[in-house]
Design a protein around this nucleic acid. Structure first.
Length: 427
RNA sequence: GUGGGUGUAGCUCAGCCCGGUUAGAGCACUUGGUUGUGGCCCAAGAGGUCGCCGGUUCAAAUCCGGUCAUCCACCCCA
């Protein structure tokens, strides 16, 4: 039996790894412009970090976490998302004492035991940001502005939509939920089977259903969550909307948005696309004013979001969005003929690499033709050829692979080549 | 957890319905096309337990059953 990777896990190789890192880098730089600094936290935490953080009843905690007992008898879980761990670290290091506002971002792999499908893996990368210490709507607005700038710099702003909503405080939400339940129960028969179950599990989710009859039914609801929000929550939402208008950030108020995590209060938002099938969210977040307190820290308001890097990659691919890649250094291939030349080639390669150049050479004796083919295939800009003739004359042949131009040059010139090793000057 | 699709060379796939000699193609790889020069072209070569197990049959990649893997969709989510 061959050993294979775990179901739902992916190996990633060259051009893709580069694309992912470049997306990550772009986003990271935007975050830093907003004054966020990176936090690196463990992939493994005590399970209660997530059960109290995300809520016992959430799907993530109930059935999607990789949880196991350590030899020491502790129950631990692989992180299914970033916020809970960042909050734990925020509390553990008493960051609230160091500064009234703390802005942190993280990037890394998350683990969820879900059924994999397009745009959904059991291990995926998220980059996310959390702002602690402000309950002002301007903080929400800044977080959203940062997300928007990130997708703009990624070239994706045309392909995504920013949807937001307020789900108020738990007590307000409960009232709304109750009213919703009452309304929906009366029309139970026109709901899809799923939604009939949701009535007992999570009535808010019915709003999210895509079934035609459910959409029709829910769009006829004569009241909205805003009717149940406190003056403060409504004011918060209004102020946020106003700020987004002023920053000209396109957005859509969508009263149907509900989030899967318990910790959100007031603002929730999603960055969605219609180009990834049912995996339509590429980033999501919101405000969570109660979480720090709930996890044992001082009452601290906070807002944040996370972005799925693989989904961003998929979206870039599907929309044919070109990103200018950082551009690799030009490659030089050292080609050798004969044992003596082979060793010489190894030394020249080493020398040029110390000078900062990108250099390839063949380890074994191969024909000139095959080495040239390889140089061509790997996209070398120049070839340095060391054969018996060159060795005897203490020279090397330098070939420009694009033009085919070739010249014989004394070896000392190679040694005297400056830091950048500009071969153009030699030709 | 539920439903559907697909498993044949490193990759993308044909062949399967209508069982039958050494299981194919393209790409990639290796070597060569007269002495030490790449790209195009040409030739040769290497590479496969036809996912696995069992059944039917004189004979199975092909038919049947099971199993595993993977993908897609639902659920949920980034």
């Amino acid at each position: 039996m061959k050993i294979t990777r775990l179901h739902g896990f992916k190996d990633m190789f060259h051009p893709e790894t580069q694309r992912l890192r470049s997306v990550e880098d772009t986003v990271r730089k935007v975050f830093e412009r907003f004054g966020f600094s990176e936090v690196i936290i463990p992939v493994l935490e005590l399970s209660e970090t997530y059960s109290t953080g995300l809520g016992d009843t959430t799907d993530i905690v109930q059935k999607e976490m990789y949880t196991f007992e350590t030899k020491g008898g502790e129950w631990v879980s692989m992180r299914p998302e970033g916020t809970a761990g960042v909050v734990r670290a925020y509390i553990e290091h008493s960051l609230h004492r160091k500064s009234p506002v703390t802005k942190l971002y993280y990037s890394g792999e998350m683990f969820r035991h879900e059924k994999p499908q397009e745009g959904r893996q059991r291990c995926f990368n998220q980059i996310g940001a959390e702002l602690f210490g402000s309950r002002d709507p301007l903080a929400d607005s800044e977080i959203i502005a940062m997300l928007w700038l990130a997708v703009t710099e990624l070239g994706l702003s045309e392909h995504v939509e920013l949807e937001l909503n307020s789900i108020g405080k738990p007590a307000e939400r409960e009232l709304y939920k109750k009213a919703l339940l009452e309304f929906l129960s009366q029309k139970k028969d026109s709901l899809c089977e799923n939604c009939r179950n949701r009535l007992t599990t999570n009535p808010l989710r019915v709003l999210d259903c895509k079934t035609d009859t459910c959409v029709e039914l829910t769009s006829g609801i004569p009241f909205s969550i805003r009717d149940y929000l406190s003056e403060q929550s409504n004011g918060h939402l209004d102020a946020l909307l106003r700020s987004l208008e002023e920053k000209s950030i396109p957005h859509r108020l969508n009263p149907r948005i509900v989030r899967g995590l318990d910790y959100y209060t007031d603002t929730v938002f999603e960055l969605t696309t219609d180009k990834l099938g049912s995996q339509n969210a590429v980033a999501a977040g919101g405000r969570y004013d109660l979480l720090v307190g709930r996890m044992g820290g001082p009452e601290t308001p906070a807002v944040g979001f996370a972005m799925g890097l693989e989904r961003i990659l998929l979206l870039l691919e599907k929309t044919g969005t070109r990103r200018n890649s950082p551009g690799k250094k030009q490659l030089v291939c050292i080609i050798h003929i004969g044992d003596e030349a082979r060793e010489k080639a190894a030394n020249i390669a080493d020398d040029l690499r110390r000078k900062g150049m990108r250099v390839e050479t063949e380890y074994e004796n191969k024909s000139l033709k095959s080495q040239m083919r390889k140089a061509n295939r790997t996209g070398a800009a120049y070839s340095v050829i060391i054969g018996e003739d060159e060795l005897r004359g203490k020279v090397f042949s330098l070939r420009n692979m694009k033009t085919g131009e070739e010249k014989t040059i004394p070896l000392e010139k190679l040694a005297a080549l400056g830091g950048h090793g500009d071969f153009r000057k030699l030709l």
